[in-house]
Amino acid sequence: MNIAIASGKGGTGKTTVAMALATCYARNSLSVALLDCDVEEPNVNLFLKAGIDTTEPVSVLIPEVDEPSCNGCGECERICAFNAIVLVRAKPLLFAEMCHSCGGCYHVCPERAIKEIGKEIGFIESGTRDGIAYAGGRLNIGEAMSPPLIREVKRRHSDSGTRIIDSPPGTSCPAVEAVKDSDFVVLVTEPTPFGLNDLNLAAGAVRALGIPFGVVVNRADIGGDSFTAEYAKRGYDIIASIPHSREIAEGYSRGDCVSYIVERFRAEIENIASYAEHQARRNARV
């Protein structure tokens, strides 16, 4: 069972909610994994502080051309939808960072002049702490293609009963890759115009993916009541509201806000946990 925590807007509290949920499930003796899929800016383990047992590099396949075997026919260029391989003066010129690893050029080359080689794009760290199994991806600096790494992080701890996926912000490929195949999505928002705009985008993406979702309003008391009406108008299911608190912000900056939140907002967190688990189970069954 996978529960993704997503947001649209960055900085609304995804990781805080993900950590709080994982802590809550672990305390209820459920088998829980926390997967940091925000591979461009992973931060789960700043809070979880799990000891790292394994570090594995993650590679994607890119083409390599054996120039003497190439007759310059241009089939590789024609099939590439991403302009990653072009023929200049009848010689293929490769832009590895634009390759989406589809293998098309490798398959169409009539001269068998292309082979696929591994290119490391990042790594995954795994560990465990306080009953929470952890895996987090980290994309190499300068690397553009995060979805293959996110996909790989999501394969970790497949034996855990409940897997919480901390997603990247936004609604583009990385966010979709993290959220898709989830049984339930928790969208964390804040009551600001920016927060609402991006919540609407994220909700649209999650609806298009056909995944049920609920909304957690973080710093719920900062934006006034007008947002409540907006949420209702769009049919959002508000699972919990967490008020703004200086204690959380101070704890967050020290990296130890989670235990505080779980104690101080126990009812809210337990509510999110049981609701998400119930919805995810219901969805996983159908």
């Binding site: 302009n83 072009v86 200049v88």
Partner: peptide, 15 residues
């Protein structure tokens, strides 16, 4: 309108 690789394709066009 290209999503990516506009510079590469423009180079191809002029070449």
């Amino acid at each position: 309108q290209a999503a990516q690789g506009a510079g590469i394709q423009s180079a191809k066009t002029v070449m």
